[in-house]
Design a protein around this nucleic acid. Structure first.
Lengths: 200, 200
DNA sequence: TCGCAAATGTTTACGGTGAAAACATAGTAA
DNA sequence: TTACTATGTTTTCACCGTAAACATTTGCGA
């Protein structure tokens, strides 16, 4: 795109630019205030230009959430990958990475799991990215079962439980607790929680 | 007041009526679409009348959430009260009641814990009702510890874990899972989850 | 009982929003 | 060059939240 400042009719990369500034706006003002018009203004583009790239506001939010799930998956997968031979440790690392993601992207996390997007199932890659991020956790759990943990418990229910736990910790840590804590305390909390699951 | 249908200047009970129809609108359309004007119209009242009872839209939502927490507290307390001598059973019952509340009031639940309300701490009874509903769970946990469960673990962290678990199950059951299940399966899932906590 | 203040509604008005429709321009491939 | 397609723009509409000024009712103290 070069460095010259000429006013161009075509922005050149509006879609990406929209998503980028949307993340910023989301972080600073929350979902309710996120306005297509304001973003268009900020990008020096007409108020209806965004509609060339997203069917409507909801679609923009869905894309934002889909990206979020991709990042979440990457973060947890990376953490879990560090302990290929110790599923309990992997689970714990995974949980920590999960909650940290939520903690450092609170508004986006709430968008991903909140009521902000209607008819989510209509957005293919939102669904698939979401499933993929769950799969990471599921894999860890299954690995754990191969190592003898969670014996005689239905795998899926265990995975549900584990996910519920980290998801719950995340949403609570994000906004609804005074007991939000230091990095260190947070890790202890997560360790204790996941530890209770693996029965240590 | 009375039963005659005369057009009256004063509605008589606008505040309560607003909250009531807000619950309905919330259930049917979600928070984003909930509009003061639409509600006013539906109640046959001018579009600015609601502002006599709520400072702004946010305050209305806060009141709605506060009511929700009161109901949640009542539901869990009632469930827990059935097992005064068996904390593990009480915890389980409490969890089931909690998730069922969320499941039957999904939009409201998401309002209570989501980003829909800004500056929650500014609304006194939202904060106090929220705290009170947490207290129910905390009491059960402490009772459990007196019975010897969760030995040698910090009480607060255990409570956090328990809350995270039921909260996580709730939000997941509400909207983000295909594995949303029958009433029976749900209870099994919760039993397994809380069971894993109490180490059974 | 009267009268007045507070509570509750109404009218009007402003600026912001999502979105549809018709039109303009730029880039691309024949 | 020429036509097609992708991308922006202008204009327009129907909403929305909410502030200000005004009206009516109600309830309470004299």
């Amino acid at each position: 795109m070069s460095g010259d400042e000429k006013q161009q009719y075509h922005h050149g990369n509006l879609r990406a630019a929209l998503l980028e500034t949307a993340v910023l706006h989301l972080r600073e003002e929350g979902i309710e205030k996120l306005s297509l018009r304001a973003m268009a203004r900020e990008l020096g583009v007409s108020q209806t230009a965004p509609y060339r790239h997203f069917q409507d506001r909801n679609a923009l939010l869905a894309a934002l959430a889909a990206d979020g799930f991709a990042e979440l998956k990457a973060a947890t997968a990376k953490a879990a990958g560090k302990y290929p031979k110790d599923a309990a440790a992997a689970l714990q690392a995974c949980g920590i990475a999960y909650v940290k993601f939520a903690r450092s992207n609170p508004e986006r996390y709430l968008l991903m799991f909140g009521p902000g997007i209607v008819e989510r199932q209509r957005y293919e890659d939102l669904v698939s990215n979401s499933d993929a991020s769950f799969q990471v956790l599921l894999d860890v759990i299954e690995q754990a079962q191969r190592e003898g943990l969670f014996s005689r418990k239905p795998a899926l229910m265990v995975a549900n439980t584990a996910w519920a736990l980290v998801h719950g910790l995340s949403t609570l840590v994000i906004g609804h607790l005074q007991w939000v804590m230091s990095e260190k305390e947070l890790e202890q909390q997560i360790s204790l929680a996941t530890g209770m699951l693996v029965n240590k």
